[in-house]
Computed example of a mutant assay.
Amino acid sequence: MSFDPASYSPTHFLWDFADGVATITLNRPERKNPLTFESYDELRKTFWSLDETYAVKAVVLTGAGGNFCSGGDVHEIIGPLTKMDSNGLLEFTRMTGDLVRAMRACPQPIVAAVEGVCAGAGAILAMASDLRIAAPTAKTAFLFTRVGLSGADMGACAILPRIIGHGRAAELLFTGRNMTADEGFAWGFWNRLSDSVLADAQALASDLAAGPNVAHAVTKKQLDAEWHVPVEKALQMEAEAQALCMETKDFHRAYEAFAAKQKPVFQGD
């Protein structure tokens, strides 16, 4: 189900939309922006809805007050979880996994802009984004073992090793220790470090929004899909996907612009 991004007004986070870029801001700065049952659910529904919200070309995900997200709220999530039966617990873990699934399924590139604390489910939100920009002081921790849980949470055991390698992911998921910004950059978790995180993330998102949006959506889809198949199958998948991109008007616009020695103006069709 699509929605009007210009008038969208979520309850549990801030939403801003301009020039094709939607900015989602987790907004509980007094608690370092923890998630609640309600914010998990609203974020999940929002990202699912982006699949048909064509006016949104790229998304920036950030947090208010100098921190990204401290994970699940200790009092509003962790406490209640200790009192749930097995069915309730499984319903919750499936919902949190659905948020990652929705982020990976939406066609828009997601740029995480991370400052300060990025922990637990907050680290997962950064991980599930397509591109990640961090402040040099950002501290990231997949701290599930510190509360007696496994590192196998919200796809971490599948996605994190793909980004930083098995050994590094195993260390972070077993120990729950902080990954410094310099480590994260050296390991490929952060695409770049910046002293102007949000501005740089929005500039990057704006560049993506001005690009060939159908082609970006195909790139995002194939980046995920091709992890699961042999190279021979991936080559066939890419041949079919690229042939479809060659039928877009943006592809023809690009050729005409280059032939005229002009910069192409993409329109997402």
Rank of each mutant, 00 (worst) to 15 (best):
A158M: 10
E76K: 14
A18F: 03
K249R: 05
N67M: 00
A6E: 02
R31W: 03
E183R: 01
D85S: 06
L244P: 04
T46H: 04
F251H: 14
W227V: 12
T46E: 05
T93R: 03
D98M: 07
G120S: 15
K220E: 02
L193Q: 15
D182E: 13
A6D: 07
A138R: 00
L89N: 06
R253C: 06
M95Q: 13
A128L: 00
V60T: 15
E171G: 10
N33L: 05
T140F: 00
L81A: 08
E226I: 13
E232F: 09
F174I: 06
Q267Y: 06
M246H: 13
F266S: 04
E256N: 14
L81T: 14
K261S: 11
E226S: 06
G268T: 07
P10G: 08
A210W: 03
A123Y: 00
Y8F: 15
G165C: 11
F189K: 00
G88P: 05
A186N: 03
L26D: 00
T46Q: 04
C69L: 02
G268I: 10
M95S: 09
V229G: 02
G148W: 06
E91D: 12
V197A: 01
G65W: 10
L172R: 01
I133W: 00
P136F: 02
F185R: 13
G116F: 04
A239G: 07
W187I: 03
